[in-house]
Design a protein around this nucleic acid. Structure first.
Lengths: 239, 239
DNA sequence: CGTCATTTTGAGGTATTTCAACGAAGGTGG
DNA sequence: CCACCTTCGTTGAAATACCTCAAAATGACG
């Protein structure tokens, strides 16, 4: 498998280090050749809801691409509580490691389809295809920005504010322009609590408050309808 | 400037995606050739303490390597408060952007020497030298892990615990094996507060408590001496 | 040595955490 | 198809810890 350093630059290469195209949107621009290479390397796997994909501290043999569904990564703290590190959806990458071991546990939140790519082969491929590697660089940078955004969220003291920011985040990530009002919430309230650094009760009360204030209507457990977007955004931005 | 895809794999390539060598340590393994290329591309610049290196939302024209000193990045929130996003020391990279603009403001905490590398040229170089790009991938991944660790810290409720974790973090990052007890604190208490998501007063009281408990002695404003490392670590790990 | 920014200390207010119990939802098996 | 059971979510009340405001003290710097 030989290939030259890929002279042609995709659209993503114009932007500065190591920027995403726009707002929260991930990059979806792989050349057919690159897709083919990755597909050849990876295996398509489907996990039922709640299935653990890999565990913290296990040997990190593969990297994963989420193709469909939702995944959460979390860490078990010494005290027994779980801290959710990230939620991952279509096009997201997960499975980062340290010293050859996964740093978090990954678990399917809904039925999920992923591509599993062996680490060793992937690293070898990245060494040969700089443009493809640049996509990874972009993706990891995106994750980093996401983590920083979360730090902003957790800097707030009030649970309703954190929840508002979380909802806006999901809205940007999961809704299309034609149905922005309906935000899917595939994860449980406990997961949200674990992600926002609050107790489950605090999240429950916060959503009650958002409802009472007329900002959002929670329809069932896995959907939120935005009733007053401008006020929701204002609350989310009011740091 | 032509170069083949760099077949030989450095020591860092054995590890899984996109792992650091060990604990918190950054990678310091560039080939002489790579160092040379980067040096040719970049300019060595020195900033006095408190100098702003770049501002949030400014066009992201360059990426920076910290060679010596300490830098903080922060974001100005709508409410007027500042949230410190990261502290950067020797060998760290900063200047990541989104949509071609810096996401944070960077400011020198002490007198700092950096290498400033124009984004466009760097991206071009990374396209040609996959091994070099892999170093960047590793560095960004390291930053991501750091951000996740911070999220863990901010998940705690008690200020003394957060401060303990922060001190341990700095100890791992800034001390050598022969003088682990003395932790340099180049940044101000306000900066620490901004990083940990607490008020300045809370940090002040937390350090008083750590002192009273006999865990740490704060010697002046920019140094902390660890008096009882095992208890400090226990507190830091007691999440 | 004086000035200014930073840090410490004090007291009250407020939000979340905990603990506990109830209610609802989802999944399983008969 | 229903009943049961387990998990998840809601609600209530007391306790804790931090935040805010205010003022004194410390340290940095010219």
């Amino acid at each position: 498998m030989k290939r030259r350093p890929t002279a042609e630059r995709g659209p993503t290469l114009r932007a500065a280090p190591f920027s995403a195209t726009g707002n929260g949107e991930p990059i979806r621009l792989l050349s057919p050749r690159q897709r083919q290479d990755l597909a050849a390397l990876g295996v398509k796997v489907t996990f039922p809801s709640r299935r653990v994909i890999y565990r913290e501290d296990a040997i990190a043999s593969s990297l994963y691409f989420c193709a469909e569904g939702a995944v959460k990564t979390f860490r078990e703290l010494p005290g027994g509580t779980r801290r959710v590190m990230s939620f991952l959806f279509a096009e997201d990458v997960f499975g980062l490691a340290r010293s050859g071991r996964y740093v978090n546990t990954a678990q399917a939140v809904t039925e999920t389809t992923c591509y599993r790519i062996p680490s060793a082969e992937l690293v070898a491929l990245l060494q040969q295809d700089a443009a493809l590697q640049y996509h990874f660089l972009t993706k990891v940078t995106h994750e980093l920005r996401q983590a920083q955004r979360r730090a902003i969220i957790m800097g707030r003291r009030d649970a309703p504010g954190r929840l508002a920011m979380f909802l806006v985040m999901l809205q940007e990530r999961l809704t299309t322009s034609d149905e922005r009002e309906v935000i899917p919430l595939p994860m449980s309230r406990s997961d949200i609590a674990g992600y926002l650094g609050h107790s489950l009760e605090a999240i429950s009360r916060a959503s009650a408050q958002l409802t009472q204030r007329g900002l959002v209507a929670f329809e069932g457990r896995h959907q939120a309808r935005v009733l007053d977007e401008s006020r929701l955004l204002r609350l989310a931005a009011d740091v």
